[in-house]
Simulated assay, not measured.
Amino acid sequence: MNRCLKCNVEIGDDTGICPLCRCVLLRDKDLKTQMKYPAVGQKKERMKYAVRVYVFAAILGFVVLCIINYMSGAAVRWDLLTGGVLVYGYLTLQLSFLNQNGYRFTMFWQTLGAMALVIFIDGILGFQGWSLNYVLPAGLVLLDIAVGVLMAVNSRNWQSYIPVEIVMIVLSLIPLFLHHIHVTDQWYPAIGCFGISIFLFLGTVILGGKRAVTELKRRFHV
């Protein structure tokens, strides 16, 4: 017996075309095989639609908050603060629902997004400098710790995290640069952040031995 998925009718003979809509019929055994697999495409489309609904609601809400903030004459731009949170929410949805690059990519960019949000909040509140002095180095240290934990958990493929460690060393130069140009006035968080990134990388190379050296040669063709 064949079935038409469009008309939802069963055809008793062996014909392959639905007499109602002229679509190709699906055999019962093929239908059973098809039902074993989840409708991944439909689920992804629903996620995309949910993200679009969020974007529309976020834009509408932000415009309303801007109007309220302007009419109330508030000293603090809390509408911009809310807008920053909404943008971070959109980043979270994109990384959680629509991202296909794996958990490392998600963890990395979501942490950087959180640090950017905190710096933005500091700027809106008059920029006291606490975000760049403390939050930025602390966030990078947390990323270093997360990389170390993931390497320990994924011990069979720990060498794949070496490029991430190199990226962390480059990022840890940012607090040092900000202190050098006198944007920040606290040097010990910047030095500590850079030192931890260097320590993690050197520890990986020294303890990893030949596997670490081989991974570096493979990645950078040296």
Score class of each variant (00 low, 15 high):
Val63Asn: 05
Phe220Met: 10
Leu81Gly: 14
Gln186Ala: 09
Leu112Ser: 02
Gly123Glu: 05
Trp158Asp: 08
Asn8Met: 11
Leu202Thr: 04
Arg77Gly: 04
Val55Gly: 03
Cys23Leu: 11
Glu215Arg: 15
Leu81Trp: 08
Met47Glu: 11
Val170Glu: 01
Pro137His: 02
Phe220Cys: 14
Ala57Ser: 15
Leu5Met: 14
Asp122Ala: 08
Ile68Leu: 12
Tyr90Ile: 03
Gly129Pro: 05
Gly41Cys: 02
Tyr49His: 10
His221Met: 10
Met151Ser: 06
Phe201Pro: 02
Met1Thr: 15
Lys217Leu: 12
Leu25Thr: 08
Val53Cys: 14
Gly203Tyr: 07
Ile162Phe: 03
Ala74Phe: 09
Gly73Leu: 09
Leu86Cys: 09
Ile67Asp: 11
Phe220Glu: 12
Ile119His: 00
Val9Leu: 15
Val222Gly: 07
Leu140Gly: 01
Arg46Leu: 12
Ser155Arg: 15
Lys44Trp: 11
Asp185Phe: 13
Arg104Leu: 02
Arg104Gly: 02
Asp14Thr: 06
Leu207Ser: 14
Val85Tyr: 07
His182Cys: 01
Tyr49Cys: 09
Leu112Lys: 00
Gln94Cys: 05
Trp130Gln: 00
Ile166Gly: 00
Leu95Pro: 00
Met115Arg: 01
Cys4Thr: 10
Asp144Arg: 00
Asn2Glu: 11
Val153Met: 14
Met168Tyr: 01
Gly208Phe: 04
Val118Arg: 01
